[in-house]
């Protein structure tokens, strides 16, 4: 038996466009990840609690609705309350000018529209492998 990367993927708030995140789930699965998909309409506390129960190595969230700044802030606050320290990945329809602010909040990687599959896998793996080596 070997250790595998476990990542929780979720949609937060009222945003119900899940085509992208479901594709990412499949992509990561095809690269050996165990993906725990929480589905739609999760609160920040729900995502953090699920990630704790799953002992996840990372959290990935995706937005189309333009709520990313608000929801990411809520998620990072909930993680701090629960003393959870894992990398957060954020993707979807996120304007490039928001990336710096998201990263300042603590997001490890931001994926813009048009990011190719292999790049998503490489950047997510890169962050997790660096974390494991540390």
């Amino acid at each position: 038996m070997t250790k595998r990367h476990r990542i929780v993927l979720a949609k937060m708030g009222l945003d119900c466009h899940d085509t992208g995140i479901v594709i990412v789930a499949q992509l990561l699965r095809d690269h050996g990840f165990e993906v725990i998909y929480l589905g739609l309409h999760n609160s920040a506390d729900a995502v953090v609690k699920a990630a704790l129960q799953e002992n996840a190595d990372a959290i990935g969230i995706s937005f189309l609705s333009g709520q990313h700044m608000t929801q990411v802030r809520l998620l990072i606050e909930a993680m701090a309350r629960q003393r959870m320290q894992v990398p957060v990945f954020c993707g979807g329809v996120v304007p490039r000018e928001d990336a710096a602010e998201l990263q300042k909040m603590g997001v490890a990687e931001v994926f813009f529209p048009g990011t190719l599959g292999p790049e998503v896998v490489a950047r997510v793996s890169g962050v997790l492998d660096r974390g494991r080596a540390a």
């Binding site: 789930a25 990561l28 095809d30 165990e34 998909y37 929480l38 589905g39 729900a46």
Partner: peptide
């Protein structure tokens, strides 16, 4: 199930049990 090819998996059961998360 895990993929017999890559060992990866999509674990989706808890998405149906979301109402108990709190």
């Amino acid at each position: 199930p895990s993929s017999p090819l890559t060992g990866g998996a999509v674990l989706g059961d808890r998405a149906r049990m979301a109402s108990h998360i709190d």
